Simulated assay, not measured.
Amino acid sequence: MKSALAFFALSLATTTVCAETPPADVEAAVRAADEAFWKTYNTCDLATAGDYLTVDIEFYHDKGGLTKSRAELVDSIKKNICGNPDQRVRREAVAGSVQFYPMAGNRALLIGDHRFYITEPDKPEYLTGQAKFDDLWEYVDGRWRMSRVFSYSHSGVTYTPPAAIELSVAALSKLAGRYASRQGGDITVAVDGSHLKLSSGSHSFAIFALSPTQFFAKERDLRFEFSAPKGGAIDRIFVRENGNVVDEARRQPGESK
């Protein structure tokens, strides 16, 4: 009996000694691993991305469902995130939102909010959505790897309009007139108190000044850039949505102020 107990104690001691022990500063190490993984994601470095995932990782997405295993998740990123050469996706954690929680068994949890941006040829990067995440990290084979990922509460980004400035009626009047748009047809711009009213067909809405030639809508991220040739009068409007030019309207003859 003593021999059996001694063997059991020796086995337990050996197991304890041989168990993997992560570096002392767990939080710094996990945050560094997290930052490194998302760098591979943003640059489509898929060969390296897999090194930050356990073989049996489970990825739960509120819209896309469950993806199981390292191979399936890397393949999903390859097809869905990195599959379109004309569209690059960039993920960014919302500053100050990421929280760290140590877990028993050489595990740790990172939770927070992140946003996703898209870049397309000849267009500025624009924000496309946001979500929450819970990532469980484990110390496996000498390094920190993600083993369970929850990505949920995906939604569009709430638009917060900027602060408007006041322009004189005389300054606003220089922009008023009729314009012809490729997308929206005939457009009328008129002075409406301290701002402009833009009308197209049965639709009209107020636009407010950011500068003497830059205006915005309060309902959603629409910007209107009144443009003029060097030394000339305003002759067109560039319409931007989420930073991208989506339409152009030219001033009609006889409408220049």
Results as ranks from 00 to 15, higher is better:
S3D: 13
L5I: 07
A9N: 02
V17S: 04
V17Y: 12
E20A: 09
P22T: 13
P22W: 13
P23G: 15
P23S: 03
P23T: 11
A24F: 15
A29W: 01
R31T: 10
E35L: 00
F37Q: 08
W38Y: 15
W38P: 06
Y41K: 10
T43C: 02
C44L: 11
D45T: 04
D45G: 06
D45L: 01
L46K: 00
L46R: 00
A47Q: 10
Y52W: 12
L53H: 06
T54A: 10
T54S: 10
E58L: 05
K63V: 13
G64Q: 14
G64F: 15
G64M: 15
L66W: 03
S69E: 10
R70M: 15
L73K: 02
K78D: 04
K78Y: 02
K79N: 08
N80F: 12
I81W: 14
I81A: 12
C82T: 07
P85E: 06
Q87M: 08
R88N: 03
R90I: 10
R90N: 08
E92P: 04
E92L: 06
A93N: 03
V94N: 14
A95K: 11
A95C: 04
V98P: 00
V98D: 00
Q99S: 11
P102G: 13
M103W: 01
A104F: 09
N106I: 04
R107L: 08
L109A: 10
L109E: 06
L110Y: 01
G112T: 02
R115N: 06
R115A: 03
Y117M: 09
P121E: 12
P124S: 06
E125V: 14
T128R: 08
D141A: 14
R143Y: 04
R143P: 01
R143H: 04
W144Y: 15
R145Y: 08
M146C: 11
M146A: 13
M146K: 13
R148I: 09
V149C: 07
F150M: 04
Y152E: 03
Y152K: 02
H154A: 01
V157H: 08
P161N: 10
P162Y: 03
A163L: 13
A164R: 00
A164D: 04
E166N: 09
L167Y: 00
S181K: 00
S181Q: 05
Q183A: 15
G185R: 09
D186K: 09
I187G: 00
I187P: 00
T188Q: 06
V189A: 06
A190H: 12
S194T: 07
H195F: 03
H195P: 02
L198M: 14
S199L: 08
H203W: 15
H203I: 11
S204F: 11
A206R: 07
F208T: 05
A209P: 02
S211D: 14
T213N: 11
F215M: 05
F215A: 07
E219I: 13
E219K: 11
R220K: 14
F224L: 02
A228R: 03
P229G: 04
P229L: 03
G232M: 11
D235C: 00
R236S: 05
R236L: 05
I237D: 05
V239L: 06
E241V: 14
N242S: 11
N244V: 15
V245W: 01
V246R: 04
E248Y: 05
A249N: 03
A249E: 05
R251E: 05
P253M: 05
E255M: 14
S256V: 12
S256G: 09
K257H: 09
